[in-house]
Design a binder for these strands. Sequence first.
DNA 1: GCTGAAAATTGATATAAAACATGTTTTATC
DNA 2: GATAAAACATGTTTTATATCAATTTTCAGC
Lengths: 231, 231
Amino acid sequence: MPIPEKSVTCKNCLTKSECFKELNDSQLEMIEEGRLEVTFNKGEVICKQGMLASHVIYIKKGFVKLYIEGNNGKNIILTIEKDGYLIGLQSLFGKNIFHYTAVAYEETTVCLFDMKALSNLLELNASFAAKLIARLNENTIRSYSRLFCLTQKQSSGRLAEILLCLSNRIYQSPRFNLALSRKDLAELTVLSVESLSRVIKEFKEDKLIIVDGKTIEISDRKRLEMICENG
Amino acid sequence: MPIPEKSVTCKNCLTKSECFKELNDSQLEMIEEGRLEVTFNKGEVICKQGMLASHVIYIKKGFVKLYIEGNNGKNIILTIEKDGYLIGLQSLFGKNIFHYTAVAYEETTVCLFDMKALSNLLELNASFAAKLIARLNENTIRSYSRLFCLTQKQSSGRLAEILLCLSNRIYQSPRFNLALSRKDLAELTVLSVESLSRVIKEFKEDKLIIVDGKTIEISDRKRLEMICENG
DNA sequence: GCTGAAAATTGATATAAAACATGTTTTATC
DNA sequence: GATAAAACATGTTTTATATCAATTTTCAGC
């Protein structure tokens, strides 16, 4: 089990969440109160679907997947997220259990904030509330477009979308050292590992991407975007 | 084009949204200001994806579908909703365009509320904000489970889920006069009309449902729930 | 550098659902 | 009430992707 530590306070934290920038010093102290900092290893469960969501979990550093667990081991990855993301906001003012499981793709440091303290702050600070709502809505809209992608596009369109997402949103570079296994990519695209492998092969042959070990480079973004749009 | 009318004010409205019950009289007057009431006929577009979301649209009476429009006429229905639902909340504090299109399944009366007035109220009334956040989160969680259903279940599981949803959430009765065509049901389950027809036939043969014209009765809820869970 | 296990690829086959084609019923219109 | 049109049903073919099986590559641990 990882050992909690407290390197910095919220007030002087440099990797502060966008939302938390709306808080003044006394409000930052309120959430600092009872804050926990924990580091998870690759593959470890950060929060478990169905468990009591007593805290909101801020990703300070790292890279995670959020997924819904079905009956027969059938899971669906809702989203992949990195530092700056707040896990568990969906449990605010509702049934306070986690609606998904979060697992670290690589070593991940998080801060835990008391859910009650957070909802108190929402009442005190309207622009904080506005930022949080904006954040929630961003997530929702992203989940809508994921719903569209997975139900309306076929294999190549889905992979194109995931690759572009990794390049644009996660790694923010056309070339990246992929921390994900084929199994992870297959889960993200909702394909079998074998089918995924074939689509990757096709993309390589079509000179859309260059794969070298764990490194992926998007070599023809225009065409990949086309496939994402129309595939 | 339907003609706006104002039968009642927000203050004395009997079909008030759950959220709006948090507002006091002066706050209700604030949203009453500039409110519009409009009735749409079956099949009419209530809001269009991509258009400026200047208003939040409250469904006072009726039954609608919200869907995302893709390129080649490929649409995906996000949800079906009836009276009490607020359309466009997802555009609060973000890019204020509608992220989906809403179409009336039957004659539908709505109230339009100014988005800006609504966000002002959020600052004034914290418990109103809390209720709205709760509402947003409910939607999000429902969209997660839809994502799961459509990607992990096959035809019979999907239809079972939609039928149960119609019975439980929309019509609130085991027997209902379905306003939806097969094409609508096919869109909801993300199946072709032909495949849908076959699954319905199968359900009839298995005595899970009784179909008589436009009326559907769920005759074996237990087994339908099983199929929904495991299919 | 070797060795075994896990991960990834590749090929062959199976399958669920789409697409196509055609027939039947329901609904709307004159 | 006749007729056209739309909605629905059903049988056949096609297709995308899963599954199964076999092989190759990668990588950690000795």
